[in-house]
Design a protein around this nucleic acid. Structure first.
Lengths: 217, 217
DNA sequence: CGTGGCGTTGAGGTCTTTCAACGAGAGTGG
DNA sequence: CCACTCTCGTTGAAAGACCTCAACGCCACG
């Protein structure tokens, strides 16, 4: 895992300049960090909680493009405005960096740039996986894919309950479905014995193999 | 437009090492450049023609994640294998770089790294736009979005015919639809007067405003 | 104990897919 | 030069997956 590498690089090489420019912030669940199209003058690192990134259509339809967990960074837009909005799913804590200072740091620390490039590559691969999901998978496959991937990303070991911080509606907007269809897919996977639902905000992977198979790839 | 910047950087700063490592290649329409999961030991720049990048499910369902046009690069996987397959849509010409030499060059030319990071950011923004399309737009909106964006990307001025090198099936796999639905959406937009279809492989944007509106955002 | 948000379930509707037929055009071979 | 064939695209009819609308239960909160 390379999740800590940015912070690592900062702390080792540039502690003094980091100290000068880092600020910490907290947001309550549901609050907006920034909006799509807003001026992109800060870069963030998430340290606690979960964020959702999303894009909107004029009539209100929403696509969540990703959920961020501690260790993820966001906001590095090379255009002057954010390409997406960001909101707190749970209470969150994060580090904020002024964008200009961050770019200056980028000039001074080549390793940081390489790290960001590597991360961007990972994100791109994830985005392509998500396109496959949205364009070609069934509701059941979409949910199964998400549940497998999320458990893994959270580092939850097999058989352990995984916390689901987001609502069914959020999940729907992430998977390109409605809340109701997500709910039915949960029921379906549960009835099939692939997962268990101790309560509405937790799930357990009961058959990793079969769930992976239900995910379609 | 920064499309030429990589080549620019190479030619100005590293001409001799470039000469040593660049190789040119051609592929006929339909041929495979590399397959998903194959060893990622080369990086490419497309100089002529159009490529499609895609991911597959086991049962053959395909999602095209992007069409590449001259000036685009591909293949910079930080993992050891390609995350997607690449095939020629038309006859293509490209430059190939051995991956290791390319990474060495990356160490020597900091500007190149910044350029790649900037491009990765653009690609990520495009990918998120595509997620919105796949997850939340109707068939008509998807096609309208594509037609507007493709004309722009090709730099075709308003009212001029745009060449469509890919088949309806390719378009379907890109937009998360079937060939038939794509065809119906074409007919629909044509009947509505938003576009014209001089022949099956060209279209004309007749009302940029209204087409943009039909694209949903 | 009411109220409101969230999730589940059912019934009916809709958009897209599936299946099928048909037409146009390119390339092939008689 | 003219069938012949194959691919690609279009169109229609029927089927299906998901959506919409609605009712209901649960739980936290005031």
């Amino acid at each position: 895992m390379r999740r800590a590498a940015v912070c690592g690089a900062l702390e080792v090489n540039e502690l003094q300049s980091l100290e000068a420019m880092v600020r910490r912030a907290r947001l309550a669940a549901g609050q907006v960090l920034f909006e799509e199209g807003g001026p992109a003058d800060e870069v963030f690192t998430l340290t606690e909680g979960v964020l959702r990134l999303y894009k909107l259509l004029r009539d209100g339809r929403r696509q969540i493009t990703g959920f961020l967990i501690p260790g993820d960074y966001l906001g590095l837009a090379f255009a002057g405005t954010y390409a997406y909005g960001a909101e707190a799913v749970t209470d969150v804590a994060l580090c904020r960096f002024p964008r200009r200072a961050f770019l200056r740091l980028l000039d001074e620390v080549p390793a940081l740039e390489r790290e960001l490039l590597s991360r961007a590559g990972n994100e791109l691969a994830l985005a392509q996986e998500q396109m496959l999901l949205l364009g070609r998978k069934t509701a059941r496959e979409r949910l199964a894919s998400f549940l497998v991937g999320f458990a893994e990303r959270r580092g939850v070991e097999a058989g352990r309950p995984v916390a689901l911080p987001m609502s069914r509606a959020d999940l729907g907007d992430y998977l390109g479905l409605t809340m109701e269809t997500v709910s039915r897919a949960f029921t379906n996977l549960c009835d099939a014995g692939l997962i268990a639902l101790p309560d509405k905000r937790h799930y357990v992977v009961r058959h990793h193999e079969r769930l992976l198979e239900a995910a379609g790839a």
